[in-house]
Design a protein around this nucleic acid. Sequence first.
RNA 1: GCGCCCGUAGCUCAGCGGAUUAGAGCACUGGUCUUCGGAACCAGGUGUCGCAAGUUCGAAUCUUGCCGGGCGCACCA
Length: 556
Amino acid sequence: MNDKITQAIEQVCKQLFDSDVVVALERPDEQFGDVATNVAMQLAGTLGENPRQIAEKIAAGLRETVADMVDEITVAGPGFLNIRLSDQELWKATQHSPLQKYAGQKIVAEYSDPNPFKILHAGHIFTTVIGDAIAKLLELAGAEVHRVNFGGDVGLHVAKTMYIVLQQFDGENPTKLADIPEEKRSEWIADAYVKGHAAYLDDEAAKAAIIELNKCVYQLHADDDHDSPFAQIYWTCRQWSYEAFDVFYERLGTKIEKYYPESETTELGMEAVTKHIGDVFEKSEGAIIFRGEKYGLHNRVFINQQGLPTYETKDVGLILKKYQDYHFDRSVVITGNEQEQYMGVVLKAIEQFLPKLAQATTYIPHGMLKLTGGVKMSSRLGNIVRANDVLDITAEALRESGHKPEDYMLLAAIKYAFLKVRLGRDLVYDPKESVALEGNSGPVILYARARARSILKKAAAAVDTSNNTALEANERSLLRKITEYTEATNKAIEELMPHNICTYLYELAQDFNRFYEHNRVLGDPREAVRLRLVASYADTLQAGLQLLNITASDEI
RNA sequence: GCGCCCGUAGCUCAGCGGAUUAGAGCACUGGUCUUCGGAACCAGGUGUCGCAAGUUCGAAUCUUGCCGGGCGCACCA
């Protein structure tokens, strides 16, 4: 619909002024019309004419070419061109056709990134929900999306965990693994990490032992060792971590199709970095570094003094590995913004020897998750808020408000709360507010949808889809709001920011509530048309919720 | 010290260059309705849009400086 109007305006401008302006349509205040454009003001500069006069000329031309689609075309203010569509065109506009910005593209979306040998913390649930919503947006825009994550199965944190495990097992005794009950595995690993981390900080001997273990873990991978007692413990613990991730993702309603462990990216990374010592990387104090300061960035170590790859090199390997596996058109990487500058350095380094891969990468940083009261959650400290804690405090909030903490409601509350603020901002999470039955919350949207579905179920009349019934002003107003879904999703796609969807859904629900309060549907002479409105409204809410990966229910 | 991000009503946030009064929700106050799911609707009012300059016909929105907060700055991830 908008395409036709846009084309018509461009055509008229071409005919009248021989101008090739690109027309951008906006959504004006309702009193002015359904769509508007400021082309006349743009043209005024180049043509040296009064923008209002230009607008009048364009309006006259348009009245000829799009007469069948519009009710009224007016000129207002400094030269805005306002167009009021016909009812039929508005109905057509409820058939949403999202911007196909990524049509036919294969996109690898990396997010969540939990580390095996550690526990999932609150930040992971946040980043996973955000990553999921972005993946959904990419799919809506026509992409084939592959969801992957990246986690450290080698490195100091692994050595810290293994140090305590070995202590508890009285050495390399894999048979002791059987003593750990299945349901206690992730807690047990988490606990070992926390203790290992503390030992590393407090105890010099432990620190030395952990550094040694770190090398052992790298060696284990180099040797492809699956048989030694040490290796058996290592691989089993890694597997247990991955199983815990599977459970977590399933509960959140997502599926990560591939877990990239760092161990599988080190070789490719080392190869690439080593190959470019001299032209891209350089030696410094016994390490191999990238001199980011040449580009206004930080210098970073890629291979440390012991000859081991740092995270930087593993990330270089990761992008190569992803490309080997998928031959993607675009790689989207989503992480917390504390890594933003780090990422800048890695991408700049990659740009030096693989410019195409760097250009095909979209990095999306998001903010930090905080609890009400401003408590920040750290992944390094032992006293962290765990991912499950977030689910638990939300369940508790539901109970306190007198509701069953069913998962669909729990997740709707959490996901919506996480997604409703502009991407990039820190989020202050208030579980009470997230489950609130009023205000801009997930449960409110769920309820709004359930209510609309209930009306439709009770309806006796057939829905009037004829376009023969002229709409009343308040009906038309609601319909207009429903058609805005397309703009909301397009904006979300364009910016890759899901909060646009939340903002819109809430506005829509508010508008509907107002309409519904003052207009009867069932039993009213206008029931048939109004049912069509209610159905369209319910469908729109449903589409929006799906985009946010929120599951709705008809019975609440 | 340098760099990146952020600063909008008491609180949580939209708005991120255009239509002379900057919007929601929460909280607070009053009202409507024997309610198609009342988890509703209506009314009531607060803001030097951190501060100051600049660009523009026009700035919460762009630029610069300052103030305040968060994060990052070499062998952790």
